[in-house]
């Protein structure tokens, strides 16, 4: 491939210091993102799945410039992407949609102010705010009368549409969707997913689609990465990852998802809970819960290996 991918991250680490005591000394780190490498092509969607605390949100926030990476590289069109407090011209290129449409919109601003604030701030406002707001609202399928209302006057689905309007207002190239539809009801969720897909086609957007819901990811993402305890354990085309999961964690995750209409099958119930990212176990992070753990898993971190069209980080494929 001659063209550089839209986004390439290599061995990215985002650690949060644990400070204790009167002197506020750093006593250790929460290794939220601990050596992640991923690639995202323009106009594509990469699904990032994992459970609470696996680091998927920290990864998204690091990309959006809301957290500072400790180590590793982020390349955007082959150029190094600045970290936190990045220059203004970089900020508009990567936007974010958050999970909770109740806390991510300022309750004291009207819809118009919320979705056009970025335009004003970046000096990209052409014409009046009303015109810009009407235009954005129509793009996300809302009535232009909505611009004079406040967030509390909207339903969850409509608020999430406002978040989408705000995110696309600056013509970003990449939108990080962090559990963007997880708080919505099924019927509303489907509407917002359709909206995201339509906008992607119209504006050739790329999405990093973070979700704990494998079914939602399969509806939007061509490729999927599965994250556990700060590390990617498996990546590949979504179809392949979901139909032919290779990593034992992916298998367990999939078996826990109800599949209506299918005969009920045995769930792989994982024992215990994910370990603390402040003190990850040696070797493979998944070994304490893995039904197929071997001796080598307890001592050596598995390297990524090509399997089919994807990659898997597991000693079973050594």
């Amino acid at each position: 491939m001659s063209k550089k991918p839209l986004l390439e991250i290599r061995e990215l680490k985002t650690w949060y210091p644990i400070r204790r005591g009167v002197l506020n000394r750093t006593r250790g780190y929460i290794k939220a993102v601990d050596g992640v490498s991923l690639t995202l092509e323009k106009g594509q969607t990469l699904g990032l799945v994992g459970e609470s605390g696996c680091g998927k949100t920290s990864l998204g926030r690091t990309l959006a410039g809301l957290e500072q990476a400790r180590e590793g590289k982020m390349l955007f069109h082959g150029e190094p992407l600045p970290g936190i407090n990045r220059p203004r011209k970089w900020r508009k290129r990567i936007q974010m949609i958050f999970q909770d449409p109740f806390s991510s919109l300022n309750p004291r601003m009207t819809a118009m102010d919320i979705i056009t604030e970025g335009l004003e701030e970046h000096g990209m406002l052409k014409g009046t705010r009303e015109e810009a707001a009407a235009n954005l609202l129509s793009q996300v399928g809302m009535d232009k009368e909505a611009m004079y209302r406040y967030p509390h006057e909207f339903s969850g689905g409509q608020r999430q549409r406002l978040s989408v309007a705000r995110a696309i207002s600056l013509h970003p190239e990449l939108v990080v969707c962090d559990e963007a539809v997880s708080a919505l009801d099924v019927s509303v969720q489907a509407q917002v997913i359709k909206l995201l897909l339509r906008l992607q086609a119209e504006l050739s957007l790329s999405y990093l689609f973070i979700s704990h819901d494998l079914a939602v990811v399969s509806a939007v993402a061509k490729d999927t990465a599965v994250m556990y305890l700060g590390k990617i354990v498996e990546t590949g085309p979504t179809k392949e990852v979901l139909n032919n999961p290779r990593h034992p964690y992916t298998r367990a995750l999939l078996s826990a998802v109800p599949r209506p209409g299918r005969e009920k099958r045995e769930r792989i119930v994982l024992p215990g809970e994910p370990p603390s990212p402040a003190n990850p176990p040696p070797g493979c992070g998944f070994h304490p819960r893995c039904p197929q753990a071997m001796d080598v898993c307890r001592t050596t971190t598995p390297a990524g290996r090509q399997q089919g069209a994807g990659r898997v980080w597991c000693h079973l494929y050594g």
Binding site: A190, L214, V216
Partner: peptide, 22 residues
């Protein structure tokens, strides 16, 4: 029926959305 149709499934496929709101 519409609710069942608008459920995303792991098996992929075109997603369906019920029109309108509650």
């Amino acid at each position: 029926r519409e609710l069942l149709k608008s459920m995303p499934t792991i098996d992929g496929g075109e997603l369906y959305a019920i029109s309108g709101q509650v």
